[in-house]
């Protein structure tokens, strides 16, 4: 039992550390988004492993929150970065890929 305990936490901790390395080094914002997302998933997995090994269901609701938080966080940052493409004269909609945006606004960037 102790072996399983150490193995599981060791692997989870290693994964979390590597995700932190990418979070610190990642050259762009999106790299950090991906790293944060993965880190939160690893945290959720760690909470579940603790709940399972200790047979302690107290943490399970926290798990629901963490897993939803990962989704909401990465989607909102992705929308923020994508929003840099939004045409300022438009109605605030996603301008789409460059060529489509060019057609919609009459080809003048």
């Amino acid at each position: 039992m102790t072996v399983v305990y150490w193995l599981a936490y060791g692997m989870l901790g290693g994964g979390a550390l590597l995700a932190l390395v990418r979070l610190a080094r990642g050259p762009s914002l999106l790299d950090r988004v991906v790293a944060t997302d993965t880190l939160l998933v690893i945290i959720a997995a760690g909470l579940a492993v603790h709940a399972a090994l200790a047979r302690d269901p107290t943490l399970v609701p926290v798990l629901v929150v963490v897993s939803l938080l990962a989704f909401v966080g990465s989607v909102s940052v992705a929308r923020y970065v994508g929003g840099m493409l939004v045409d300022p004269r438009g109605d605030g909609q996603d301008a789409g890929p460059p060529e489509a945006a060019g057609q919609r606004t009459g080809g003048t960037p």
């Binding site: 692997m11 989870l12 690893i42 492993v49």
Partner: peptide
């Protein structure tokens, strides 16, 4: 254990 291993490989892949 398999799930934890996958988390480790995910960090490695990152």
């Amino acid at each position: 254990l398999l799930g934890s291993l996958l988390c480790l490989t995910a960090g490695l892949g990152l």
